[in-house]
């Protein structure tokens, strides 16, 4: 009996990610969700600029590589060309919350029926460890060698909290992949986001707290500790918006 296999929605290409980086887990969760929902053949994914720029080598669905920060606009073009298709973007923190902030906010404002998988590791990985819009106060990066300071670089952006204020956002949840329990919750959240997209209820976003052992200068195990100890207090896990539950809350 096969108890564990690679989802078909992932290709055979080995990941290029650094040891201990959780991009691989997140890729698998997205692929498993697409496979579970039978969406692989009718999905178009949009890759960002950043560590996951090569996402088109890994997902076994039609893929577009977008300019830096523009994945939500590219996804809008795809979805408006054919609203029957499932469309997702896979973006890092610099792509989504710095250079692409306007695009991110406006897909929410327009209630675009796309799903954003937002990988937040509080640093620019691909370019070698510079400050991200989600870099924590005091965090040392190559462009904040004395630590990020509130009065110099400003404070980190909480994306789910910000987007959940928009009427067009149907679902916003922050998850983590630091433990088996959290990986399972993340999987549920990603699947739910695609289900809500299928219903056409508006923008869905799943923010995944992720690691960057290479640029954080920590071992893979210590990186997971840092996610729990440093990131989670500032970026609390949870559902920030869920239009499918709003009736129940009332």
């Amino acid at each position: 009996m096969v108890v564990f296999k690679k989802p078909h929605a992932l290709t055979e290409t080995p990941f290029h990610y650094c040891p201990g980086c959780t991009h691989g887990i997140i890729h698998r969760l997205v692929a498993e969700a697409l496979e579970a929902l039978g969406l692989e053949g009718s999905t178009i994914g949009v890759a960002p600029v950043g560590c996951s720029v090569f996402a088109y080598n890994y997902f076994n669905c039609d893929m577009i590589q977008a300019p830096h920060g523009r994945a939500p606009a590219v996804a809008t073009g795809v979805k408006r060309a054919d609203p029957t298709k499932t469309v997702f973007t896979y973006q890092g923190d610099g792509d989504l919350a710095a250079i692409g902030t306007a695009e991110t906010i406006h897909v929410g404002a327009r209630a675009e029926n796309i799903t954003i998988i937002f990988v937040n590791n509080a640093i620019y990985g691909m370019t070698g460890g510079q400050m991200a819009p989600t870099t924590l106060i005091g965090q040392v990066t190559t462009t904040t060698p004395y630590g990020r300071k509130n009065d110099v670089q400003g404070s980190p952006i909480r994306v789910c909290e910000m987007l959940s204020t928009l009427d067009g956002v149907a679902y916003a949840e922050r998850v983590s992949v630091d433990s088996v329990k959290n990986v399972l919750s993340a999987k549920k959240a990603i699947k739910k986001a695609f289900e809500i997209q299928s219903k056409g209820l508006g923008l869905t976003i799943v923010e995944v707290l992720s690691t960057c052992p290479t640029n954080w200068g920590l071992s893979p195990v210590k990186s997971l500790d840092w996610v729990r100890e440093a990131m989670m207090p500032y970026y609390p896990l949870g559902v920030y918006k869920d239009v499918t539950k709003e009736g129940e809350q009332k």
Binding site: I44, P67, A73, T76, G77, R80, A81, A102, E103, A109
Partner: peptide, 26 residues
């Protein structure tokens, strides 16, 4: 059809990229 006013020129041209990639005249 659809006429969509984008949030910026930058977003508009990238919507064009997406729609063109999806095979539509745009």
């Amino acid at each position: 059809g659809l006429c969509l006013q984008a949030e910026s020129e930058v977003a508009a041209i990238n919507m064009v990229l997406g729609a063109a990639a999806a095979g539509a005249r745009v």
